[in-house]
Amino acid sequence: MNTSETAVTTEAAHDDHDHPSDAKYIQIALLLGIITAAEVATYFVDIGVALIPVLMIMMVVKFFYVASWFMHLRFDSPLFTKFFVAGLILATTVYLVFLTVFEFWSKG
């Protein structure tokens, strides 16, 4: 949290200029749609042991694109990213430990 250097900074975080164009948004939506199609395809095509890792990677990519482009995290104040990522990381680790204590992974 180094956003505090001095009290009244100017509107540093409000840089509307480099916001992406509508075309860019549509491109990203297309990409997301294609990934979703690929995800659904795994339900019909057997890809063996690669299935779970591949699904996870596609999920993370979709998540990342929505968060960084549609939610503007890549253009906005890093403070927002910090709060969101803090929540995400905390939730992921705490609940992974939680499931581990329940021996979830060996139960399948």
């Binding site: 956003t3 009290a7 975080a13 927002f80």
Partner: peptide, 10 residues
Amino acid sequence: PTNTGISHNK
């Protein structure tokens, strides 16, 4: 302007 340059609401 706020300390962080971002709005309260956001």
